[in-house]
Simulated scan of single mutants.
Amino acid sequence: MKDYSALIDNVKKADNELFWLGSASSDQINKLEKILEVKLPESFRQFLSEYGGGGIIDAEISGIEDNHAALDNGGTVFGDTLTAREDYELPENLIVVFFKDYEICWCLDSSSTDNSGEYPVVSYNLFHHKVDNKIADSFSDFFKDYLELRA
Results as ranks from 00 to 15, higher is better:
Tyr124Glu: 07
Cys107Thr: 08
Gly53Ile: 02
Leu94Thr: 00
Phe99Pro: 01
Asp141Cys: 11
Asp109Leu: 08
Asp101Ile: 08
His68Lys: 08
Glu86Gln: 14
His68Ser: 13
Glu65Ala: 12
Gly54Asn: 07
Asn115His: 05
Lys13Gln: 13
Val122Ile: 05
Lys31Asn: 09
Gln46Tyr: 06
Gly79Arg: 04
Tyr146Ile: 04
Leu147Pro: 00
Ile8Gly: 09
Asp109Pro: 09
Val131Thr: 05
Lys2Ile: 14
Asp109His: 05
Ser26Thr: 12
Arg150Gln: 15
Arg150Leu: 10
Pro120Cys: 06
Lys39Gly: 07
Leu71Val: 11
Ala14Val: 01
Ala24Gln: 02
Val131Ala: 01
Ile29Lys: 02
Lys134Pro: 00
Ala84Leu: 08
Asn73Met: 06
Trp20Pro: 14
His129Met: 10
Glu60Cys: 14
Val97Ala: 07
Ile35Cys: 01
Tyr124Trp: 11
Leu82Trp: 06
Glu42Ser: 11
Ile8Arg: 08
Pro41Trp: 02
Gly117Ala: 04
Phe142Lys: 01
Phe127Thr: 10
Glu42Thr: 09
Asp58Asn: 12
Phe127Asp: 15
Thr81Tyr: 00
Cys105Pro: 12
Phe142His: 01
Leu7Phe: 11
Glu50Met: 07
Asp132Ser: 14
Asn16Gly: 13
Val121Phe: 02
Asp80His: 03
Gly63Ile: 06
Lys2Val: 14
Leu147His: 00
Tyr4Val: 08
Ile104Glu: 13
Met1Trp: 00
Leu32Lys: 00
Tyr4His: 06
Phe47Val: 03
Ser123Asn: 15
Phe142Asp: 07
Asn73Arg: 10
Val122Tyr: 02
Phe127Trp: 07
Asn115Gly: 11
Val122Phe: 03
Ser26Ala: 13
Asn125Lys: 04
Ile8Ala: 12
Val96Gly: 12
